[in-house]
């Protein structure tokens, strides 16, 4: 029994499975983004380049490790590890193989929200600790950006919880299963707001402001190389899994069995679809400027989010 639990935590649906999923989704994202632009994307490593993210990861691990002399060494070393570990931890809360997650407690939704905030804080520290102009600008932009999308995101994420009368992600999934409905059907506005906020959380176009290549090199990531960069990239991939898992769990029914398709397979299909939407969306826009982005979030997204909360409180979509 203990052995099985360890297997669950480490292999399936725990760490190993999630990491494989992270690499797979990076491939999905890159491939789709490339196809939209008329390119092939990864092509040579494995069938259709599916192993390219793994190859990139291994390549980065073996690269020279450069530490800027001026950096704050402790932070500089610690942040990449934490950045990769945090979304991995948070993913244990997500129901992946069954409507019940490995770890679930009343209020874990709050923990997820908190971990999003923490991710941004880590980004800020990463940029700050590297003591370079581009990194500093990138991290300040990242913090500013968080200030603008965090509030609509928090408001809207509470709506499914209100409807399901549970502050646990697993609880919300089970509520959807019990009522044979999807959160998206009840709260389409909420889903739209969440998708926009998540584009910002993941720093994808049009909100890739903190790492705008043509403006500030690689933003907060500029000074990171080798294994630290590899960890950041893996952290980013895990974050994509986390975000799409959250969207799927709260709005798209989560990991539920459908006829003979097991819950885990449904989860993978649904999250892959969410990732595809993200990568398609990021091909369609130009980048906003930071002031335009903040203004837009406060002026348009926040009222919409509030409206969603009001609707749910009035009993619509609950």
């Amino acid at each position: 029994m203990v052995a099985y639990e360890i297997f669950q935590l480490v292999v399936f649906p725990g760490a190993l499975f999630v990491i494989c999923l992270a690499f797979l989704y990076e491939w999905v994202d890159r491939k789709l983004f490339a196809r939209v632009q008329g390119r092939y994307g990864p092509l040579y490593t494995g069938p259709a380049g599916i192993l390219q993210p793994v190859a990139d990861f291994l390549k980065l691990l073996s690269k020279e490790d450069i530490v800027p002399r001026a950096c704050d060494a402790n932070l500089f070393f610690a942040v990449p590890v934490m950045y990769a570990a945090l979304p991995l931890t948070a993913l244990f809360i997500m129901p992946i193989a069954a409507p019940e997650a490995l770890v679930s407690f009343e209020g874990d939704l709050i923990f997820i929200l908190f971990s999003f905030g923490l991710m941004t804080l880590l980004i800020f520290l990463a940029g700050w600790s590297s003591m370079s102009r581009f990194s500093a600008i990138g991290s300040v932009r990242s913090a500013l950006q968080m200030l603008s999308y965090e509030i609509p995101l928090g408001l809207v994420l509470v709506c499914p919880a209100i409807a399901a009368r549970s502050l646990s992600v697993s609880g919300i999934v089970q509520w959807q299963a019990a009522n044979a409905t999807w959160g998206a059907a009840l709260q389409p506005i909420g889903l739209a707001v969440v998708m926009v906020c998540m584009l910002a959380e993941l720093e994808l176009v049009p909100f890739d402001i903190p790492e705008a290549e043509t403006e500030i090199v690689a933003g907060w990531r500029t000074e990171f190389t080798g294994r630290r960069l590899a960890l950041f990239r893996m952290g980013r991939d895990l974050e994509i899994v986390l975000v799409s898992a959250l969207v799927v769990s709260l709005y798209l029914g989560g990991a539920q069995q459908l006829w003979l398709v097991p819950a885990a397979a449904m989860f993978v299909i649904k999250t892959a679809a969410v990732v595809a939407v993200f990568s398609f969306a990021r091909a369609l826009f130009a980048r906003f400027r930071i002031d335009q982005m903040i203004a837009g979030m406060w002026k348009y997204l926040l009222p919409i989010a509030v409206a969603q909360v009001v609707l749910v409180q009035m009993g619509l979509g609950a």
């Binding site: 196809r35 939209v36 632009q37 008329g38 092939y40 369609l284």
Partner: peptide, 15 residues
């Protein structure tokens, strides 16, 4: 650009 992006998905990449 969404229309063209969708059309592009069905076309062979030009690379």
């Amino acid at each position: 650009i969404v229309g063209e992006a969708l059309r592009q998905l069905r076309r062979k990449p030009c690379t």
